[in-house]
Design a protein around this nucleic acid. Structure first.
Lengths: 139, 139
DNA sequence: ACGGATCCATGAGTGGCTCAAGTAACCTGG
DNA sequence: CCAGGTTACTTGAGCCACTCATGGATCCGT
């Protein structure tokens, strides 16, 4: 019993994803790289923290950071208190790229601008319901 | 001026994507492969039609179909009327896998079930506004 | 100081994706 | 009818994201 709403959701998510990908690519980044930069708003995060934030393997972060570092958007430095830990900092150019992606990613703001203030409030309420954590099953 | 609604949209899309990926992977497919099977509801589509439907390169479709064919979910056959064209058909097992993905992808139905009928109608209306094509610029 | 745990890197492997070049089949004009 | 252009797909090279297994360095508790 798959209704038109399911299709609308699919289409919306598809458009959203495609828009983000285009925004990142316009700045010369992949979506994953843009996400990593976004996770670096809080500067000086460790590789492990980034992996946790991005819900992926630490090894994946290593490679993403390596590529971003090669592009000069990010730097790696050993934590003085624990030399196992590498802290990643975003460079000035990295910050610029990050802002450029956010600017190019005009899909949400552009589309939401079609709604009235009241409609946005409605949507926010509906999303809050949809996003609420699952009811946890009894232990 | 990025508000909480933007964050909610991001979170929703993220959860939606992750759920689809998990559903596909639970059946032993990638998201892209599941999408291709989904595009094969209309059977006997050509490679080119699939590429157009998936908005990707024909070469990409070749590889996806090759892998799906190796898994026995799909077959390739030359079109008798135009031997350049390859028509792709979904096999019985392919149909089964496709149904399994749709069943495992319970995110939309599960979450939408939290809404009342009226709320779903609201959401549908909002999405219709958000998804409407851009106003075309004057020629 | 030893042994286990933690953090990260490396290497191998899979897949998705793109572009450029190739091949086979079709089609059209002379 | 056949030469040349077009179309449909494949192949190959290359990049990136991602995972898993392994390894090396550092830390920490006993």
């Amino acid at each position: 019993m798959t209704g038109p709403l399911d299709q609308q959701l699919w289409d919306f998510v598809y458009a959203y994803d495609a828009a983000y990908d285009r925004a990142a690519r316009a700045v010369g980044l992949s979506a994953a790289q843009a996400c990593l930069l976004d996770a670096l708003t809080e500067d000086g995060r460790s590789m492990g923290e980034l992996a946790a934030a991005l819900l992926c393997d630490a090894s994946n972060v290593t490679q993403l950071v390596t590529r971003l570092e090669a592009g000069g958007l990010v730097t790696r430095s050993a934590d003085p208190d624990d030399r196992r830990v590498k802290r990643v900092s975003i460079t000035t150019e990295g910050r610029r790229a990050h802002r450029a992606v956010r600017r190019a990613f005009d899909f949400p703001s552009g589309r939401l601008a079609r709604l009235t203030e009241g409609e946005r409030a409605q949507l926010s309420g509906l999303l809050a319901t949809l996003l609420a954590p699952e009811a946890s099953p009894p232990s």
